[in-house]
């Protein structure tokens, strides 16, 4: 049951909304324990790509694998059978996610937000779940905010609680969907600091959709540049985040593409 490998492999992933093809056959391989940043202009499909990995967005064609498991399907008698809700939840427990708008549960305190997954999905007892949640809040520097409701926290603090909530499931893989885009400029640094620290520990795979080019340069092992539903370039930050890589990338880096 315990998978050793937690790499991500996408093969020919297609997503359509009506006539519009958001992902046009994307293939990508992300090694385990690495940090991959996905960048590109808005509407390029980068958030959709991220959301296919834990099947918040079901895909129309192709396969998504995390480790040796195909996400959302099970192979039996030569066919792919769509998983039940319960089985899909079991897969999602291995995959953490941090959202642009935090999506904290407003009726629960910080420590309850973080402990909810361990308590309900992993069925830990209340004291163990709470201790795990407190430990994670300490890691993101919010011990004193444990009993605050999300509405009483700043955006940066909320996002750090959200990161702790994702970590509480001890995931092998964490997806970050533009984690700093909804923050006031002066709050971005505290969230990036937590993510940087996480990346340095190197025990999880991180996939980060971001507009923070500086962060990508500094932290990423690989950078994926997306444009119009396709991957334009993959490589090290130095290779991809360089004006010579392609005219589109040059335009993006100079700020002419948003």
């Amino acid at each position: 049951m315990k998978p050793v490998d937690h790499s991500v492999t996408l093969h020919n992933v297609v997503k359509r909304y009506g006539q519009h093809e958001v992902l046009r056959g994307v293939s990508l391989s992300i090694p385990a324990n690495t940090v991959t940043c996905v960048v590109g202009p808005s509407g390029s499909g980068k958030s959709t790509l991220l959301r296919t990995i834990n099947r918040l967005t079901p895909i129309d064609a192709g396969t998504v694998r995390v480790g040796d498991q195909i996400i959302g399907y099970e192979q039996r008698d030569g066919r792919y059978h769509e998983l039940s809700d319960r089985q899909l939840c079991r897969q999602r427990r291995r995959i953490g996610m941090v959202f642009q708008d935090f999506n904290l549960f407003p009726h629960l305190t910080a420590v309850q937000n973080v402990g909810e997954g361990p308590r309900r999905a992993l069925r830990l007892d209340a004291a163990t779940a709470r201790n795990r949640a407190l430990e994670l809040l300490r890691r993101v520097g919010l011990t004193d905010k444990a009993d605050s409701y999300p509405g009483q926290l700043s955006g940066g603090q909320q996002q750090r609680v959200a990161i702790a909530r994702a970590l509480a499931m001890r995931p092998e893989l964490i997806l970050f969907d533009e984690p700093t885009s909804a923050l006031d400029p002066e709050l971005v640094a505290e969230v990036l600091a937590v993510m940087r620290q996480l990346a340095a520990e190197a025990s999880t795979t991180m996939v980060v959709v971001t507009h923070e080019i500086g962060f990508a340069r500094e932290v990423a092992d690989a950078v994926v540049f997306m444009d119009d539903g396709r991957i334009e370039a993959v490589g090290t930050p130095a290779e991809v985040l360089h004006p010579d890589a392609s005219p589109r990338i040059a335009a993006f880096l100079s700020g002419n593409l948003k």
């Binding site: 834990n54 809700d85 939840c89 996610m97 959202f99 997954g117």
Partner: peptide, 21 residues
């Protein structure tokens, strides 16, 4: 909708998400 998505992302089933979140 973000609440449903957040509940799904921490591995809650749809019934758990409905009751708890």
């Amino acid at each position: 909708d973000g609440q449903r998505e957040a509940a799904a992302s921490i591995g809650l089933t749809r019934l758990q998400a409905f009751r708890r979140i």
